[in-house]
Amino acid sequence: MDFDQNNHRESDIRIDLLLIANMIPEGARVLDVGCGDGELLDYLRKEKKVDARGIELSPEGVKESVAKGLSVIQGNAEEEIKHFPDDSFDFVILSQTLQAMDRPDKILEELLRVGKRAIVSFPNFGYWRVRLHLMLKGKMPVTKSLDRPWYRTPNIHFCTIRDFVDLCEELNIKIEKGLAVDSSGSKMSIKYMMLANLFGTQGLYVLARN
């Protein structure tokens, strides 16, 4: 299970980031919101020749990004993104960070203000093992990858894939593409929402303005 952005298994990172990278065309202008150590941006810059920018909260992440030659600013994503002009980017990426936002709805709107498209990935709280944990134990899941108790986790706004789709509808955001990733890292279609929401550990969406 993979819910904690700070504690991925290595294979999860690669697949998650690779799936995102595959969605981005050559030479695009890209902002990665919560870019961590800049791994995805560095890959995109080298493989896709993108104009890469990032926002990152942790000084360590910024430092590692800068050493990779990336342009990354230290700051709170929800505050800093406000200061970018409309249409600054072709793609704005929010990878495994949505659940840590103060207002996930506002950040989605901001992503699509500064970017023509947004790519959002998030842990699916509708995954069957989470449901089972909650049902059998009656407690919030605390696992190897989700290792902090509910009162100390930065992940304050968990959602299911279905919740996410509902929110996009409510905000009049167009879903251009959506897929779920199962525990083996394989892509799953979201055509059958019930199955995707049950067996997907992550949701991955390309969003655009309607």
């Binding site: 920018r53 000084p59 910024v62 430092k63 990004s65 800068v66 990336l70 342009s71 990354v72 600013i73 230290q74 700051g75 800093e80 200061h83 970018f84 002009p85 600054s88």
Partner: peptide
Amino acid sequence: NRELVRALNAAGAQVSFVEID
């Protein structure tokens, strides 16, 4: 410094920013 960083971002400049504790 943040004002400067935000202006540089608005101007489309390549900018990194670090606040050291």
